[in-house]
Each structure stands twice: as C-alpha cells, then as structure tokens.
Design a protein around this nucleic acid. Structure first.
Lengths: 152, 152
DNA sequence: TATTGTTATACTCTATAACTATA
DNA sequence: TATAGTTATAGAGTATAACAATA
C-alpha cells in the first residue's frame, strides 16, 4: 500500500541520473549531449536526420547539440560521401575515448549494484525486470500509435 | 555482455516518463510542475522555501512553477498564519482531484506491470530492487557529500 | 517536388544576483 | 543581520516555421 515497486524503479532512474549529472557537470556534457554521443558510439557515423529520428527530437535540436559537441571537441561534421545536402557526424578520438570510459564505468556500476543482490534472487530479478520492461514498452508504443492516429 | 540490467532499469524509467508526458501534455502539466503537485499532495501546504528544498531547486525556480500552476488553477497561494514574509502553497480542489486520479492510475500501472511477472519471481524481484535502490542511494549520497566538501 | 540542415523565434526549466518586505 | 519571495538576466533543451542547397 505504501511504496510501490514502480516508485522504486523510478527512484533508481532518478538516482542514476543525478550520479551522471555529477560526473559530467565539469565538462560540456549534459544528458542530452551524452545521449547523442551514445547513439553515435553505438551506431557509428550518422546524419543529423538519422540522429533526430533515433533520439526523437527535431532536426533543429540536433543542430544545436552537434554545435556544442563539435565546439567541445567530441564530434566532427564530415561530408557525406554521396549526398551533398547531408553531413555525417563522427566521434573524434577524444569522443570515442570518452565513450569507452563511460561504458566501462557504467558496467562497473552495474556489477556493483548486482553484487548487492542476494545470489538466489538474481535470476528472478532479471526475469521480472525483463517482463516489466517488455510490457511497459508495448503499452507505451500502443499509446503513442493511438495518439499518432488521432493527430491524422 | 550485451544488455546490462542497469540499462533495463533506465529504460523502464524513460518509458514511464514518456507515458506521463503523453498523458499530461494536453494540460499545463510538465514533469517539473507535476513534481511540485506531488510534494504538496503528500506533505500538505508548504512554503515556497520548503518546496525549493524538497525538490532541490532554487526559490526562483519555484516562483515560476507556482505561477504556472496557480494560473492553471491547480494550486493557490495563501497567507502564512505567523510569518508575513512567507506564502503557503495549497492544492485547489481541482489540484487535489488531479492528484487522487494520478495516484490511482499510477497504482493501476504498477499492478498491471507486476501481473506480468511470474509469481515465483516476485519476491526475488522486490528484494533485488530494494537492495539496488538502497545501495545506489548510498553511493549517490556519498558522492554528493564529497562534492559538497570540495566546494567548501 | 521532397529532403537536409540552418536561421529565426518562442517557451519551459534551471541558475545567480540584486532587491523588498518582513523577522 | 537573516530569511521569503520577486524582479532581472542568462543559458540549455525543446518546438515550429521559413529558407537555402541539393536530390
């Protein structure tokens, strides 16, 4: 009745964000900018249009984020090989190094947290989180499809 | 190696936020404003200073949020009984009704998600989430205390 | 004609600093 | 002198709309 499981899950998300904020505040790296780096790190060089779609923000928004990341030396705009309208956004060596480090500390935190869970509970925990993430993903996707229908 | 448990947890937080955004976009209720309502709903009438501390934002920021919420009819500023400098922020009947509905749908979503988890996994899931939330809370609190020390 | 990225404009959330009224 | 709230100003993230270059 008192504290819902969902609330705990949301608390974890919030705490993680606060931890990230603290870790990156010193540089030019906000959450929005880190997300851009993350997508480029995982998907490789991408056009700004592609980034806008993957991050579900406007092209204008991406322009500003890439401006900032380029100014800070984490990405560079390069010519698209076949489409002269488009630019390809790539990580610089500095940006690539940052993402490797970030992925590493992310993994370490994951392991630290998992170590606090009783070994007997881990399998149930993973299956439960999986089930919840899947169902919630479906619910949100459904709701967004409906909302999109309504617009049209 | 591929997908970390932590990533799933963060995904759940993101999906929930997207769901909330969709549900409230139609009104004057952003995430920041909903958080104010949530705190007043749970803690009762509060001064703006108190809200600023509880939400960890500046007093100036609270001024703007209360302006918006007052304009939309969800809260009202009333005189503080003993301190003429301060204002007490209260929910209007509309605001109170909104929070009751929100708490209800929040609970429903919680139950729906939990129902998707195999009954045998639920206890382990709850214990695991609890352990993770507790440890992460401690880690973040420690880090923030240290950061605060550095400033001083 | 459609698409890519930019310029122009606006709104929300956030912060710091200066100020007013009260304690 | 210290505190509660506001005004002034600034910067980041986001959105729409108009526009240039290219497809």
């Amino acid at each position: 009745m008192d504290i819902l499981l969902l609330d705990r899950l949301l608390l974890i998300g919030e705490l993680f964000e606060r931890d990230m904020d603290r870790a990156f505040d010193s540089t030019a790296l906000s959450k929005a900018r880190m997300r851009v780096l993350w997508v480029v790190h995982h998907g490789g060089p991408a056009t700004q249009q592609s980034l806008a779609q993957q991050l579900d923000v406007t092209a204008r928004n991406i322009s500003g984020l890439i401006d900032a990341l380029e100014g800070a030396g984490y990405v560079e705009r390069t010519a698209h090989p076949t489409d002269r309208r488009a630019t390809l956004v790539k990580l610089t060596p500095t940006g690539a190094e940052l993402m490797v480090q970030t992925a590493r500390s992310h993994k370490e935190l994951n392991d630290t947290l998992l170590a606090a869970v009783d070994a007997a509970d881990r399998a149930g925990l993973e299956r439960g989180i999986d089930a919840i993430a899947t169902l919630l993903g479906n619910l949100v996707a459904e709701a967004e499809t409906e909302a999109h229908m309504d617009q049209t």
